[in-house]
Each structure stands twice: as C-alpha cells, then as structure tokens.
Design a protein around this nucleic acid. Sequence first.
DNA 1: CATGAATGAGACTTCATTCAT
DNA 2: AATGAATGAAGTCTCATTCAT
Lengths: 197, 197, 197, 197
Amino acid sequence: MTLAINKRKTPRQIRAQATVEAILEASAHILVDFGHGALTTNKIAERAGVSIGSLYQYFPNKEAVMTELIRHKRSRMLAAVDMALDDTRSDVFDTALDAVLASIIQLQLNWPRLALALDQAEVFLPLNDETILFKVALNGKINEVLGRQGSKVSEQTIQDVVAIAKGMIEHASLARETDEVDLRRRIMRAVIGYLGR
Amino acid sequence: MTLAINKRKTPRQIRAQATVEAILEASAHILVDFGHGALTTNKIAERAGVSIGSLYQYFPNKEAVMTELIRHKRSRMLAAVDMALDDTRSDVFDTALDAVLASIIQLQLNWPRLALALDQAEVFLPLNDETILFKVALNGKINEVLGRQGSKVSEQTIQDVVAIAKGMIEHASLARETDEVDLRRRIMRAVIGYLGR
Amino acid sequence: MTLAINKRKTPRQIRAQATVEAILEASAHILVDFGHGALTTNKIAERAGVSIGSLYQYFPNKEAVMTELIRHKRSRMLAAVDMALDDTRSDVFDTALDAVLASIIQLQLNWPRLALALDQAEVFLPLNDETILFKVALNGKINEVLGRQGSKVSEQTIQDVVAIAKGMIEHASLARETDEVDLRRRIMRAVIGYLGR
Amino acid sequence: MTLAINKRKTPRQIRAQATVEAILEASAHILVDFGHGALTTNKIAERAGVSIGSLYQYFPNKEAVMTELIRHKRSRMLAAVDMALDDTRSDVFDTALDAVLASIIQLQLNWPRLALALDQAEVFLPLNDETILFKVALNGKINEVLGRQGSKVSEQTIQDVVAIAKGMIEHASLARETDEVDLRRRIMRAVIGYLGR
DNA sequence: CATGAATGAGACTTCATTCAT
DNA sequence: AATGAATGAAGTCTCATTCAT
C-alpha cells in the first residue's frame, strides 16, 4: 500500500487520468461552443467519449467537474504568474508588472469564451476555503510585484489592482479584443495611475 | 415598442400592475436570498403570492422576468447618473465624476447580492439591441462627464473607465464593503490616474 | 314570459346573437388558419373581439362551441340536400342524385380545411342523440333519392352510398381538388356502379 | 435512416427494445380504451410500466410516439397487401382484389378503435415525405392489382378506388361491423362498379 | 471498472374556466 | 351583462444521478 505511493502510475491509473482529462476537456469545449446552459453531464460524457457511469466514477457530481475546471484555471494562472516573475531578469517594478499582466492576459484572451464561462461559474460556487487560498496566493504574488516598486502596499491596494485588471481584462474578453499589447499598455496605465507613480 | 417586446400583455388594471410588481420583487428577493439557481417560475409565483398562470400572463417565459429586472436596473442606473449630472452645479470634472460614481456605487451596494446576480444574468443574455442601446447611452453620459475635463476622450478611454469602475465596484460588492465614500475615493484615484492627470 | 316567446328579438337578444355568431366565426377561422391544436377559448374570444367571460356567457364550455359549429354544418348540409331535392323538377333518379352530390360537394370544397377539421371534431364528440338524429335525417333524404330509382333500397345500401361519397369527397378535400364537376361525375360512377344499375 | 429520424437513440440492449415496445403498446391501449384526448406522455409511461424519462430516451416528443405507431400500422398494411398478392396463385383480377381487401379489412376491424384513432392522427401530421412515400407504395400495389384487370388505370382511378375502400372500411369500423366477408363483398361491388367492368 | 438503460423530481408552460370588478 | 385578471390542474420535457448487467 504505502510502498506504492511513489511508484510510477499503473496502466489503470494512466487510463483513469486520460478519462478525467477527456471529461474536463469535453466540458471546456461545451462551455466554449454552447455556453453554460448546455453543459449537462450526459453531454459531457458523450463528448468525452466516455459513458455517463464513468463520469460519476471520477466525479461525485456535476459541480465537481466545474470545480476541477476552475481549479485548473487557477493553477494555470498561478503558474503563469510565477513563470513571469521568474523570467523577469530585472527587478524593475514596471517590467515585472508588465510580464505578469502579459501572462494573465494571454491566458484569458486565448479562449475568451471559456475564461468568461469559468468566471461566471466561480460566482456560482460557494466561497470555500480553496477559493480563499487561491486569492491569498494570487494576492501574495501581486504583492511581491508591487513590492518591487519600493514602498509597502496595503492589502486594499492589492485588491484594487487586481480588481482593476480583472475588470479591464473581462471587458476586453467580452468586446472580443485581440490586441494583447495595447490592452496591457492600458492596464499598466490604470494601475500605475492608481498607485500614484 | 421596445419595452413591449418581452411582454405578453400590458396590464390595464391596477391589480395587474400590482401583480407584475409583485413578480419582479419576488424574483429579486429570491435572487438575493438563494441565488440564480433557485430562481424558478414556480418559486417566483409562490413568493409573489400569485398563481403561476398570472406570471405567464405578463411574462412569456422565465427569461423575460430576468430581462425585465435587468431593464429596471439599467433604467435606475441611467436615471441616477442623469440626476447626478443635473445636481452637479459646477461643471468641474472632478465633482461631476464624483457625483456619478456616488450614485452608481450607491445603487450597487444597496443590494449587493441582487446587483451581482443581475450582472451575471446580463452576461447570459445575448448582446441584443437593447443592451447595445444601454451601453451607448451610458457611455454617452460618461463621455459627457469626461468631457468636462477639457480634452476630448476616445471611445476606448470611456470603455476603460467604465471597465475600471465596474471591476472595482463588483469587487467591493463581493467583498461586502460598506464604506461607499472610501470606495469612491479609490475609484476616483484609479480613473484620474488612468486618464493621466 | 311566455308572451315574449314569439315576439321580435329585443336589442339585447340581437347583440347576444351577434356575439354568438362572432364566436363561431372566429372558431371557424382559427380552425382553418391554424388547425385544431390552436383552437383555444382565449384565442377564440380574442379573435371574436369579445372577452373570455362573454364566451362563457353563451357557451358552457369549449366543447359546446365545437358542437355548435358541427350543428351548423349539419344544418347547412340538410338544408342543401333539401334544396337540391326541391329544385329537381324531374323525379329522375340520376338528376336527383347529381343535384344532391353537387350541393354536398360544394359545401365541403368551399372551405375544405374547415370541413376536414369539423369531420375530425365529429369523431371526438361522443355519439350522442343529436348525431344519431342527424344521421337518420340524412339517410332518410338519401333514401328518398335512391327510392326514385324504382326498387327499394336497404339501410345497409344507404349507408354504403353515404360512406362511398364521404370517402371520395374527403379524399378530394385532402388532395385539394377543385374540379367539382369531375368529382361529382366520379362519385356518380361509383354509386351507380355499386347500386348495380 | 428514415426510421431513425424521429428516434432519439437507437436501443442497443434487449431491455431497451422491450421498453420501446412497451411504450408503443401502452400508447395503443390508451388510444383504444380512452381515445386520443387521454394520450399523455405520463399516462403512456405509467401504463408501460416505465419511467417518463425512459420514454423521452427513445422518443424526442409525444408526436414521435404517434408517428411510430402510424409507421407500424403502415408497415403492417403494406406487408399484408404484399402477402395477399403473393398468396394469390391466379392472376385473376377479382381474386387478387378480394385477397387484398380481405387483408386490409382484417387489419382495420381487428382493433377498430386503434385503427380509427390512427386514421385521425394521420390527418394531424403534416404530409411529410414519409407519408408521401407510403401513399406511393400503397398506390403502386393497388395499381398492380388493378392492372390484372387488363386495361391500364389512371392515377386518379387508383386514388378513387382507395378512397372508396377507405370510406367504406372506416364506416364499418365506426358502425362496429364484424362481418368481414359481407363488407368485402360490398366493397368489391363498389369498386368493380366504379371501374365499370 | 465500464456501460448505458432507467429513474423521477421538478422545471417550464398552457389553457379551460372562474370570479371580482 | 361584460370585462379581463386570476387560477391551478395538468401536460411536456430535462437532466443529474443510480444501478443492473
């Protein structure tokens, strides 16, 4: 039992992993193509090429699928921000912020419909521990970026910066903007303006 | 005309008008108390103290109830902005912007749950003519405010300002902020910063 | 009370009569334009320019409206047959049959959709006394026509002749035939052939 | 292909096939026992000993159940006519017509109420491709029968023969006739008389 | 484990009919 | 009488979930 923990995945586990991913991918596609209202467990299973019974083998209920989708999105976002921070050779504030914004924007504008759908779904889900943890983690990273500016920033400031960026990125998604560079420039302007130089 | 599109029948008697209002009020309460997922026509009718048949006498379907709710919210918002602009004796930019923000914030923080629920619902509804008209009208008013600053502003700028304010207000709603004055101050800072002096 | 029975209709009665007729006419139009499935009491009242309450003033229920429509159709049919028989100067069998068929065909092909709809409705209604009386009356008249042929005819023969004519006329309705003369000729052929000269 | 049009899902397991048959049988029984107006999806499912969900697993809507019933009836009719034609050793016209009539009459008088109900339902359904194909197929077979008479017959003649037979058989159904032999004799008389030797 | 048939609560909606005004 | 607002039983259909095979 315990011995197996760190062992390479058995074929069974590999297949299970593939099934889970097929289900998540199918869900994302349905959200993108037909919207939230068309996301039913039967359609997900069908599109994933899996039986409905199998879906319930891996997810206790429909909400769990959505939750997992959101979890993935959050992971990608945190990872993207981390990578942006690592990539940033200089510790210059502007460069770091720019890099972080670029990574987030890219994430959102890549599949704007999916991103918007997940944004919506997030509101449906109860404000659970996981959500709080994510926000704490993200705010921590943003804090790190803003810290490079020199002065200390308050929690409120961090939240405001996130709110500003989120508002502008979501609007860009809805407006089907595609010019990521321009969007980033405008968000930079808003954030820096807000921070008051 | 436009108003009648989603109506099945225009109430002629006072009683009918009361029924329509009861339905809308009940819908708002359910949204606030239990959220979007609990909003069913039967529950609405029950809470409104009205038969399900009466609901369908005045609304062709469930979506129409939501639409009407959104329509009301938009009307209130435009009216509030108008009033803010009228009230502003001076033509000073800052004062006008402050007044407009105050009125909008007040609307949103008054019933934050309802406002958030309607924000969500708005995304579900297709971007129909009515939505476009509302955005044009709102942007026009914001343009008027920003114009008092002296220089001309682009459509993009207007949209960005709206996006910034919307993002910050929605975040405040979610965070259950209650200090409207502070929120307004921070939004002012972001907007003025974005506009660049 | 009793004194009034034979008096000229009062204005009130005249208005009532007009309402009843408006209702029946509206029903016929709806049947013709939208079919049986679209015939609802509210639509009837609306199209008749009458309130739903008034409809129920004159008809105890929806079925009664249909029944009255069928009653009218039957009256027209019996009257048409009577007239055809009266008009026929000669007592020659062929001429009489031809005249009767002409009148019935004309009735059916005039508003084929209404006629078909009423044919259908007839089957829905229970086989009541009125229906039996109508059939007896019609068969009596057909018997009279067939009698002019010389020999006596059985009840079975009468029914068969009616069935043949009804089958052919209904098919002509469905097939949207318009050549009444040709249809009559073919029915004559079938009936005379059946009677065996 | 054509068969699948109104099907939601083709049953793969024996259990599923049984469900579909139970639904159709229940529908037929309800039509026979209570008539068209009592045929509701809930009653069908209940009588079939199946959940309402199962009904909708195999039929997209209520109309599809009726359609399938009619489809079955048509299949039985075409098969019966084919068998009658095959059985008829001699190519004598009278014998062939007699055999065909016998098979059709037998079908209709077997469950007269069901047959009548389906006749009615047929009129409700739009004259779709399937209906046209059926009529063409049936007329083709009748043409074959009539052709054995020697002379060529027109399309009009075929239709008239079908209309005569249909009219008489339906009347026999309604009149609860049970003497199939006599009915066949009378129809033969009408058809042969119409054809005029 | 996988499959997919089956389930059934419950959502939306219609429409014949009633009744206060 | 006329009006039309209101009623609510009942019908159609969906979809998350279970369970026998």
